[in-house]
Design a protein around this nucleic acid. Structure first.
Lengths: 324, 324
DNA sequence: AAGAAAAAAGATAGCGCAATCGTTATCGCA
DNA sequence: TGCGATAACGATTGCGCTATCTTTTTTCTT
């Protein structure tokens, strides 16, 4: 393009990167360059730009499972937000593996992403913590104990408390809690809320925490077992939407009615939950707010603002349904 | 790293890019390099690599709406498939806008992606078609009339036919069809199936096609109108899961029973649909197969295989529920 | 009319890698 | 002993851009 127009590459670069004014390029030149660029359908090589400027206008998003509707919703909001801020999003599914998380994060850095948004896996985030020296990192939903990384999450303890108290207030005492990934902070906090509520009612001996995965299958299998117990629980607290779906299936198969025979309460919200019969009583997380906040914090960090201290816990909202 | 080890950058590059054997680098050297690389946590700059090799091991995925569970499911499969083939995925939400589609595709190309998977928007894909000269492009779900681009889609005509015939076989005659984006091929084909089935029964005068968006709101508003008609339809054919959800809400609000007062049949499948009451009768698309096939075709094209002729239509499966 | 200032542009280098084209040791073999 | 074959490595260049430093031209000032 440079030779075709008779201008230097420098001038052309300036025009195309919007720095024409700053360098006082004459309007005639600007127009000529722009016209030619359009004519020959020019678009700059992002690879070369990143190499030179060390910025890529790209953000990496690390999720434990894109198939989980909860994370898919989150991804949707994040992608849209980032896009309107001029960023492109690379989505990686870490499949609930700490090793994949580390590898993916490194791979993202070697791609010169400008920042990382992550729902981390595993117990201790040493690796992410280290990487955050090289690049802005913001956690969503999950975080690590004593981490200095910024995060945005739900007040899961409160959610666990609310759900359990709701069941207790309806007279339930045999309440089983089907959990997901034990090492994850939201899971721990929800369980803590459940335990606290039970203990407050003097039901410490009835505490029953089972399961080990945020999956439909886990919910299904654990509920199958529960339903075959001599002394069935009268209520189930499912720690995720997927677990709830599995539980629902098992309860149906046992020929039991909800909520008459077994009450059911779940975490997460979803387009569909209102349309189920019975509609599901649930602890809804403010996914959209969380996602938008996390994006905001990340972009601020990228711009150099040092609100590293941002560790936010948003309140969940209980949506009353007919299932409990 | 080169000077720290006393080797040339060339040698190091060869070792790290796995070409040690090809260039007969001695095992000692290889080990030394690898150890040092691990020690100093070296990872190559993908930007520089792409600049040099014109490949980025990255694929662009263009979707009209990540928030739609149907596309989110699709994205999940694609991301996972690509990842296990060694590719990273950039996801872009084109928001059902043809202009955004074009812009995003161009932006992906300037990012040196090795290929593009797209659920396109708009009537005629001139732009994508042109771009496909520069880079492999495979369409999923939607495609263009007379396009030469490879695509993988559902046999939507068959789906429309099946759904409508099912309703007809149950004795319905006043069947309204709530459609999504009119210009999209799947929509057109489903409608064509509906029309054909109606005409075959001599019900041409009862054909009733309404709506204009694949959204919950569209389904809701159109159904509200339907329910307030003097002569209500006895069955509704919703052309997507989102439309179905909106319809469901409106039917509920009208205090009507499903399927006694209004039968409901939908396109798309979903984890939740089995757990609704009544469970929804639906035309399930083979999302996973479609996604995997599209990825396969794209990777083949990247490798140079010229199966450009791949234009596949997979059969949908009707899942019987209680709603129709 | 001479000099200073502002306006408009260009020359050069280097981001981090890999393709290309070398060069230097080592060894077998007649 | 010398020669070519092979093994093992290196120097250079350029991918496409932009940051930095210069140069040329125009305009204004006194």
């Amino acid at each position: 393009m440079a030779e075709r127009l008779g201008y230097s590459a420098t001038t052309i670069s300036r025009v195309l990167s919007g720095k024409a004014e700053k360098y006082r390029i004459s309007p005639d030149t600007v127009n000529a360059v722009l016209r030619e660029a359009r004519r020959c359908n020019y678009s700059p090589s992002v690879a070369a730009q990143s190499l030179r400027t060390r910025r890529s206008n790209t953000i990496g998003l690390l999720l434990p499972s894109v198939a989980n509707p909860y994370f898919a919703d989150m991804a949707s909001v994040i992608i849209t937000e980032l896009n309107s801020a001029g960023y492109t999003t690379i989505v990686v599914d870490t499949m609930e593996s700490e090793q994949r998380l580390s590898e993916s994060a490194r791979s993202l850095i070697s791609r010169q992403v400008d920042g990382i948004l992550a729902v981390p896996c595993g117990e201790k985030g040493m690796d992410l913590e280290m990487l955050s020296a090289q690049i802005p990192v913001v956690l969503i939903d999950r975080y690590y104990e004593d981490t200095s990384l910024p995060y945005v999450t739900t007040n899961n303890y409160q959610g666990g408390l609310d759900a359990t108290r709701h069941l207790l207030s309806r007279g339930h005492t045999r309440i089983s809690c089907i959990q997901g990934v034990q090492s994850s902070m939201p899971n721990k906090e929800r369980v803590r809320g459940y335990v606290k509520a039970m203990e407050d009612e003097g039901l410490a001996q009835d505490i029953d925490i089972i399961g080990n995965e945020f999956s439909v299958q886990n919910g299904y299998l654990e509920t199958k077992l529960l339903m075959s117990r001599a002394q069935r629980p009268t209520a189930i607290f499912a720690l995720s939407n997927t677990i709830m779906l599995g539980a629902l299936k098992a309860i149906r198969e046992a020929g039991l009615r909800i909520p008459e025979d077994v009450a059911l309460i779940s975490f997460d919200n979803n387009l569909y939950m209102d349309y189920m019969t019975p509609s599901i009583t649930r602890i809804s997380q403010p996914v959209e707010d969380m996602a938008k906040l996390a994006v905001k914090i990340l972009l601020d960090k990228i711009k150099g603002a040092s609100n590293c201290g941002s560790q936010l816990r948003l309140s969940p909202i209980m949506v009353a349904g007919e299932s409990a």
